[in-house]
Nucleic acid binder design. Structure first.
Lengths: 222, 222
DNA sequence: CTCTCACTGAGAGTGACTGTCAATTGGTAG
DNA sequence: CTACCAATTGACAGTCACTCTCAGTGAGAG
C-alpha cells in the first residue's frame, strides 16, 4: 500500500460520490414525504446502493441529515492554526476555520437541513446530541489552552454557554425564517456574550465564591 | 366520573406504584448488566407488568431513566408563583420551585441516574434532547415575561445560555465525583453568569450592533 | 349489584440497526 | 498483462425498540 488515509484514489472518490448521492436523494425524499415516512431501505434503493452500505457510511438514519454539520474534532490539525485571545475570539475563528461548512459555503443547504431538523422530534434530539458533544470537545480545547482541568467548573460552564449561545442563535435564525446570513447571527450571539448578556446588571459583583480559581480568562495563543 | 385529573383514587395510585416499581427494577438491572444489555421486555417481566404498559407509562426506554428529571412545563401553575427580578434570579427560584426533584430531595437517586446517563451514549443524547427542550420552554417563559417575541435573538441566546450553564454544572458535578450538593454547584453556575463569565473582559463593550433592542433585561414580576 | 368505560395485556407487525460471510473490485507487485 | 492481496460491498438473518389493534378486566358511579 502506498499511504493509508490518502484522500485521492478511485476507491475514496467513489465512496465520497456515493455518500453525496445518498444525502441528496435522501433530502429530496424527506422533503417530499417526511422524515419518518421514508425508510433507509427506500433511500438505499433510490441511490442504487445496498442498505448495508448506507449504514456503513452514515451509521444512523439521522446522520444522513446531520453528518459533519455541527461537529468538530479536537485533534483537527487546523485547530493549532487558530490563534486567538479570549475564548470568544477563539470561538469566532473556530467557526470560520474548522466549521466553515456551517457558516460558509452552501448556506442554502444548511437552511434546508435546519427546516428538516426542526420539523422532526427525532432529528431535533439528534441535533441536540451532536451539539452537546461539541460542548464536550470545546471544553477539552478550552481546558488545554487555559491550562485548567477539563472538569473545572468555569471551563465546563464556559464551553456549554458558548455552544448554548450558538444554538440559541440557530433557533433565532430558523424562527425568523433564516433572516440574514447565519454567520452574522452567530457573530451577534458571541457579541452578546462578550457584553456579559446584561442579565445580571443590578447584582453587585460578588467577590468570587470558592471556585477553583478566577484569574482573567484569556486564552494563551500557542 | 367525579373529576378527571384527580391525584387520588385506587387507579391512579396503582399506576404511580407501578411506575415507581418499574423505575427501581430497571435501574437495578441497568447497574447490574448495563443499559444496552437489558431489554424492555426483561424490565417488564421483572416488574410483573406487560411490555405494553411500560411503553404506555414511559414512552421510550430512555424515559424510564430520565422521566421528569430534567424537564419543566411552561403551563405549570407554580410558575405564576415565582416572582423574581432578573432572569437569573428567576431561574434560581425556578430550580427550587418547579425542579425541586433535581436539586432537592433524593440527591442520591440523581447521582445514580447521572452515572448511568454518562456511561451510555444513547442516554446522553436523550438527556441532551431533554435539556434543549427545556431551553425552548424557558425561552417561552422569558419571552412572555420580558414582553418580547419568542424568536428574539436575546431571548433565545439567554435561555440557551442559562440552560447551557446548568448543563455545564451538571458535567462538572459528575466529573468531580459529585462533590458537594448539586444545588450549590448550580448556584455557582448562575453566579458565574451574573458576573458576566469574565470571558470578554479585555474587549471594549461595543455600542450594541443592529439587534432587536437592548434595554436592561429585568423580568417584570407578575 | 350492575353498568360502563378507562386501562391492561396479548399478539402481530414495522423498521432501525448489527453481525456475518461470500463475492467483488481497486491497488499493487511481478 | 496478470496474479495477488486487502479493502469494500451486498445479501441475509437476527435483535430489539416501538406501534397498533383488540378483547378482557376491574375501578368507579349510580
Amino acid at each position: 500500500m502506498t499511504d493509508p488515509g490518502q484522500d485521492d484514489g478511485l476507491r475514496h472518490r467513489k465512496r465520497t460520490a456515493a455518500m453525496a448521492r445518498i444525502q441528496a436523494v435522501a433530502l429530496d425524499l424527506f422533503d417530499e414525504r417526511g422524515y419518518e415516512a421514508v425508510t433507509v431501505e427506500q433511500i438505499a434503493e433510490a441511490s442504487d446502493i445496498s442498505p448495508s452500505s448506507v449504514y456503513r457510511y452514515f451509521g444512523t438514519k439521522e446522520q444522513i441529515v446531520l453528518l459533519g454539520e455541527f461537529e468538530f474534532d479536537a485533534s483537527d490539525a487546523r485547530l493549532a492554526t487558530v490563534d486567538a485571545g479570549t475564548p470568544l475570539e477563539f470561538t469566532r475563528q473556530l467557526l470560520r476555520t474548522v466549521m466553515g461548512r456551517l457558516v460558509g459555503d452552501d448556506e442554502q443547504r444548511t437552511r434546508r437541513q435546519m427546516r428538516l431538523v426542526m420539523s422532526n422530534p427525532a432529528l431535533e434530539v439528534a441535533l441536540a446530541g451532536q451539539v452537546y458533544a461539541a460542548s464536550e470537545t470545546l471544553g477539552e480545547v478550552f481546558a488545554a489552552r487555559l491550562e485548567r482541568p477539563t472538569d473545572d467548573l468555569e471551563v465546563q460552564v464556559l464551553s456549554h454557554v458558548v455552544v448554548g449561545a450558538l444554538l440559541g442563535g440557530l433557533h433565532h435564525w430558523h424562527g425568523t425564517g433564516f433572516a440574514g446570513p447565519l454567520r452574522d447571527v452567530l457573530d451577534r450571539c458571541l457579541d452578546l456574550l462578550e457584553r456579559g448578556l446584561q442579565v445580571g446588571a443590578p447584582v453587585t459583583p460578588t467577590p468570587a465564591p470558592g471556585g477553583t480559581s478566577s484569574r482573567p480568562t484569556r486564552l494563551p495563543s500557542r
